[in-house]
Design a binder for these strands. Structure first.
Lengths: 164, 164
DNA sequence: TAGAATGTTTAAAATGTTTTAAACGATACG
DNA sequence: CGTATCGTTTAAAACATTTTAAACATTCTA
């Protein structure tokens, strides 16, 4: 392929990896998606192995993660026994789903954690010295502040629902 | 200190670490902030070393990161040569600043990357075969779709400005 | 049914990140 | 001054993650 065109692709893939990486996502995963995102046709595992210069196993593992995220679809192509993969091009959908479900998960983790700590404090109240009671008061107050944040995040999520 | 109270604290700190970790933040960093967040008074490096069961160097490095984030303030205490640290309790402020600045950074990275790729494609246009021209068209179209996302993120950020 | 073509699993190697212990440099204090 | 008390730096160790190559299982085809 034309060198400059190839370079444009490489740069894109490189940067997608970097950017996603900074958001805590796996570099390789993002690049894999990048390759498929730019491709004008579905690619096979072999072609991806070639493009990414990575092992078959590595691609296999990571492509399945992308599939689970709904970022990539497995497509069947007449006349070939191979699996082919195609990027879901609707980025809003891909990102939106992931962001929302992960936020929801974390928020519920957060609130059960807060519940646990609150209950521990309550259950301790009888046994506490005066000084410890003060500490318990502070704990409770600070935990409450976090609960308030949760409300904020809910608001943000419903906003996200609108735009995603 | 009372066992149950201590447990409440431990649970909190443990979970804060887990949750933040899943968001791509460093475990230890989050826990360190957690300790200070719950504490009813500023703590010294030694006290943190004791509480976190970690080396002095480790605390020193990580506390400075928290300081840079504005998540922790260094406070001076009469009669001691030690540095003391205190959590910024306004979580909206702490998170808001970080989220916004990191998003802005990444968005600008993203758009310069898109510019670069677009220019590469443009500069290649003369040299392209018909088939390559088709590929270039697809690239351009897909890159454009990402630019549209950027607009979306801007909207989200201005919303964030309102609630944070 | 044998063997070729495929995708998946896995144990070990490569790489990357975090943590430590010890050395260091600075500052306070006698 | 000289010594004690701090916080920081740093090189190496511990730990975690990612990647690989090879073995494996499955499906197709002749």
């Amino acid at each position: 392929m034309n060198k400059k065109l190839e370079l444009a692709e490489d740069r894109f893939i490189e940067h997608i990896g970097n950017i996603c990486n900074k958001f805590g996502l796996n570099n390789f995963l993002a690049q894999l998606y990048g390759v498929l995102y730019l491709s004008n046709r579905p690619l096979s595992l072999d072609e991806l192995t070639e493009k990414m210069q990575a092992s078959k196993g590595n691609i296999s593992i990571n492509i399945r993660v992308l599939e689970q995220w709904g970022a990539v679809k497995r497509v069947w192509m007449r006349g070939s026994r191979k699996d082919f993969y195609e990027a879901e091009l609707n980025l809003k959908k891909v990102l939106g789903e992931r962001i929302k479900s992960s936020f929801q998960k974390h928020m519920s983790d957060m609130s059960s954690m807060l519940k646990e700590s609150n209950q521990l404090i309550k259950s301790a109240v009888d046994e506490l010295s005066d000084e410890e009671k003060d500490i318990a008061k502070v704990y409770e107050a600070r935990l409450k502040k976090i609960e308030e944040l949760n409300g904020l995040v809910s608001t943000a999520l419903s906003f996200a629902d609108k735009i995603l």
